[in-house]
Simulated scan of single mutants.
Amino acid sequence: MGRVLLFVGAVLLVSMQGAAARCVEEDAMGSDTLRGYVEGIQTALADHGFKPGPADGKTGPRTRSAIKAYQKKARLAVDGCVSQALIDHLNFAEPKVYAR
């Protein structure tokens, strides 16, 4: 019986960690709003020398990787999430952050 409870606890812990890792702001956006944010972020990342792929509004692996690279270079929390804070940082932060 003790092993079953331990297993259930481990499953709950993994489930909670997965939920915490999700991008909360993305979940709250409508699909058209999210697409617009992603296109803007992809364009800005490309302008800064990061390589998010085409500005198609889709958050694929190249876009997430470029977001994480930018966040790391800018010394932001690295989560790969699309957010208003990220697009604001890309557009308004001084000094600008560029890829190598």
Results as ranks from 00 to 15, higher is better:
G18D: 11
A74W: 02
P52Y: 07
V97G: 05
T63K: 06
P61F: 08
T33V: 15
Y70I: 03
M1G: 15
D88C: 06
D88L: 10
M29C: 07
G80W: 01
F7I: 15
G9W: 03
D56G: 07
V82Q: 04
Y37G: 05
V8K: 03
P61Q: 10
P61A: 11
A44C: 04
L12V: 12
P54G: 07
A99S: 15
R62A: 08
D27L: 14
A46N: 12
V24L: 13
S15F: 13
D47G: 12
A28R: 13
G40D: 10
R62H: 07
R3A: 13
L90S: 05
D56W: 05
C81S: 05
A93Q: 13
A55Q: 04
V11A: 12
Q42P: 07
R64G: 02
V11M: 14
S15Y: 14
T33F: 10
A20N: 12
A19E: 14
Q71F: 03
G80A: 04
Q71C: 02
Y98E: 04
R3F: 14
M16P: 08
A21G: 09
S65N: 13
Q71V: 02
I41S: 00
D27G: 13
C23Q: 04
M29S: 01
E39H: 09
D32M: 14
V8S: 11
L45Q: 02
C23S: 02
P54T: 04
L45K: 00
G49I: 00
R64I: 14
G49E: 00
L12E: 11
R3H: 15
P52W: 00
A85M: 08
M29G: 07
G53E: 02
Y70E: 01
I87C: 02
G57F: 02
V11F: 11
G9D: 07
A10W: 11
P54H: 01
T43E: 08
V38C: 06
S65A: 15
E94I: 08
F92I: 06
A21K: 13
P95W: 05
Q42N: 09
A85V: 08
R62P: 00
A77M: 13
A66N: 00
V8H: 02
Y37S: 06
S31G: 05
Y70P: 01
R35Y: 10
